[in-house]
Simulated scan of single mutants.
Amino acid sequence: MTLPKSSTGRSSSGRAGRLERGDHLRPRRRGANFGATIPPRAEKYEHAHEVIQIVQALWGSWDKDAWLLDVDGKRFADMDKIQPVNLQGKHAASRGPLPIPPSEQGQPVIFQAGGGGYGLELAGRYASGVYANPYTIETPGPSARPCGTPPSAPDATRTR
């Protein structure tokens, strides 16, 4: 299951926690589709980059063996194996570790929706999957460009 998650509007730590809790509650893999919902296009994807970096840092703030669950010793976790995340960007920030341990899967899978230049660049960096238009190499769409080529300018000719 993949849930759409806007990269705007909520704190990165709150978003990371909700997704991680969902990953704990369901035995199957769960994913998050990170998109951006505010214009202009370059700024919304800049925001999405920051949010994903923070969310992934929060998901990785616990070592795999940090969760002790030692009831007799009254230790929930080994605090030496939990690293704080102190990131400050232009659009997003976070302090401290995620307050819950990692799921069995480690982190939710990341998806990105969109086949434009900025969306494909975001997907290439972070996503495990992409929701995009069904173009092929033989019949490329209007935003087709060689893989790994960053967008040179906002794609102002396309509307969504």
Rank of each mutant, 00 (worst) to 15 (best):
Q105M: 09
A36S: 14
M1Q: 11
A77K: 12
S61P: 03
R158T: 12
R18K: 13
P84W: 03
A16R: 07
G141I: 11
H24F: 07
V109C: 02
D78I: 03
Q88R: 12
V130G: 08
H49C: 06
Q53C: 03
E121K: 13
R15P: 00
P151C: 05
S143V: 05
G116V: 01
W59F: 09
R18N: 05
E20H: 11
R75S: 09
A144I: 04
G14R: 06
P27M: 01
P97C: 11
G117E: 10
A132V: 12
R75N: 07
G35V: 14
H47A: 08
P99K: 02
R29V: 04
L25I: 08
S128L: 00
K90I: 04
P134Q: 09
I54V: 10
P4D: 00
P134K: 04
A42N: 05
A144W: 15
G35T: 12
P4Q: 06
I54E: 02
E104C: 00
M79K: 13
I137Q: 14
G106D: 03
A93Y: 03
P84Y: 03
P146I: 08
S103F: 08
L120G: 08
I82S: 06
Y126E: 06
K44C: 08
S94K: 04
V130F: 02
P142H: 10
E20L: 15
P108E: 00
Q112C: 14
G35N: 05
G22P: 01
K5G: 00
G124H: 08
R15A: 13
G114R: 07
G73V: 04
E20R: 15
A66R: 05
E121D: 13
H47G: 01
P142T: 10
L3Q: 07
S143Y: 06
K81S: 06
D155W: 11
A42P: 11
T157C: 01
G89F: 05
D78F: 03
T8A: 13
L120I: 08
L3M: 10
R160C: 01
R125P: 00
G119V: 03
R75K: 15
V51E: 11
Q105A: 15
A153P: 01
P146Q: 14
A123R: 06
P154I: 06
K44T: 11
G141K: 15
Q107F: 00
V71W: 04
G14A: 14
A16C: 10
E43Q: 12
Y131L: 14
K90E: 12
N86H: 08
C147V: 13
T149H: 07
G129K: 10
P154L: 07
A127W: 00
G119N: 09
W59P: 02
D72E: 14
P27R: 10
D65C: 05
D23F: 02
P146R: 13
G129N: 04
Q107N: 10
R95N: 13
K64R: 11
G106C: 07
N33D: 06
I38Q: 09
L98N: 06
K90Y: 04
P97Y: 05
A42D: 14
V71F: 07
P97I: 04
P151V: 10
S94D: 04
I82L: 07
G124A: 13
R30S: 14
P108W: 00
R95D: 14
Q56H: 03
V55G: 06
W62V: 04
G73D: 02
Y126M: 10
L69G: 12
E138Y: 00
